[in-house]
Amino acid sequence: MKVGILAIQGDYEAHAGVLERLGAEHSFVRLPGDLAGLNGIILPGGESSTHLKVLTEEGLFDALKQFAANGGAFFGTCAGAILLAREVHGPAQASLGLLDVSILRNGYGRQLASDVHAGKTKLRKEPLEMVFIRAPIIESVGKGIEVLAEDSGHPVLVQQGRVLASTFHPELTDDTFVHEHFLKRIAQ
């Protein structure tokens, strides 16, 4: 099993660090050809408008849609969750539409609203440490969405089929639990 990490911009090295600790084989994706041989891909945090610009220019936008159609698994954190959403607001922008949610960019406000919370998850007893950085808010979810964790009344960790997304950054904590969950889903 091999996992790609979209490495256009953002905290892709932090995700690589987590996969390294878990002993999972991984590589960086910058061009459509880099998707060959991957079973899943992580869309990291960063600026979603920057990611979108480069994805479109390099033909990766369509290649990622094809990767999903071929059964590839996705895990998006923060900006990655925005790219996966069906609908994006604040402002509206194009997205891959692989996750049936509507999402609001910078939903909590500017950097001064960035914070770390401890939140409950359906996946285990212990709470998850959630690092929110200029995070988006999932405004509404479709029927097929399973909400795995909520914070302040909003879903913050969701999954649908082979797509997993968090509005927080598990890659910026020492807890590898969410990544392990993703790797298990790929293996299923």
């Binding site: 490495a7 256009i8 911009q9 953002g10 905290d11 892709y12 090295e13 932090a14 945090g45 960063g46 600026e47 923060c78 900006a79 950097q111 960035s114 914070d115 770390v116 690092v131 929110f132 950085i133 200029r134 950054h169 910026l172």
Partner: peptide, 11 residues
Amino acid sequence: VKVGLAEMLKG
């Protein structure tokens, strides 16, 4: 979260 935003700007 201060360093976290800097992480998001990398690359």
